[in-house]
């Protein structure tokens, strides 16, 4: 993990180091097992619902993208920081073997209840730049005091 970020170091508009991933089918199978989400939508190409949705391949778990956003904000908070909240909406589908970029930007800094809070816009976006999974997060950061 990168060096610890302190509240004083953070500026509005600051971008988080993005994560780039191209999950293949085996990654989705691992995630099915790791998360306990065994919906065949994510690993069985012949699952009838895919055809009904006009798709010929499985789709990436929304929760997989959510977990990547979690990875992003956890790395930003560091060991001395704490993730307070992170949430996303699943607006669009992502397909296996296509690059997904997970990013974030600082939207606000505030002190509340003795905590140094940083609000973020976060997202997963596809190769065309479409934010398929937008959301927000709040982390508490340590202060240099």
């Amino acid at each position: 993990m990168a060096d610890q970020m302190y509240f004083e170091d953070v500026k509005e508009g600051q971008e988080l180091a993005p994560i780039k991933i191209s999950p293949d089918k085996s990654q989705l199978v691992k995630f099915a097992a790791g998360s306990g989400d065994f919906n065949p939508l994510h690993f069985d190409e012949k699952f009838p619902m895919l055809k009904a949705m006009g798709l010929s391949d499985n789709i990436v778990h929304g929760r997989f993208k959510y977990a990547q956003v979690g990875r992003l904000v956890f790395a930003f908070a560091g060991y001395k920081g704490r993730v307070k909240k992170f949430g996303v909406n699943y607006r669009g589908m992502d397909m296996p073997n296509k690059e997904i970029t997970v990013g974030g930007v600082v939207t606000a800094k505030r002190q509340e209840g003795g905590e140094n809070l940083v609000d973020l816009d976060v997202w997963a976006q596809d190769v065309d730049g479409k934010k398929t999974t937008p959301g927000t997060a709040t982390v508490a950061l340590p202060s240099k005091g």
Binding site: G62, K85, V88, N89
Partner: peptide, 8 residues
């Protein structure tokens, strides 16, 4: 799944 939001 429309969305997921955890608060810790």
């Amino acid at each position: 799944n429309g969305g997921t939001d955890y608060e810790y």
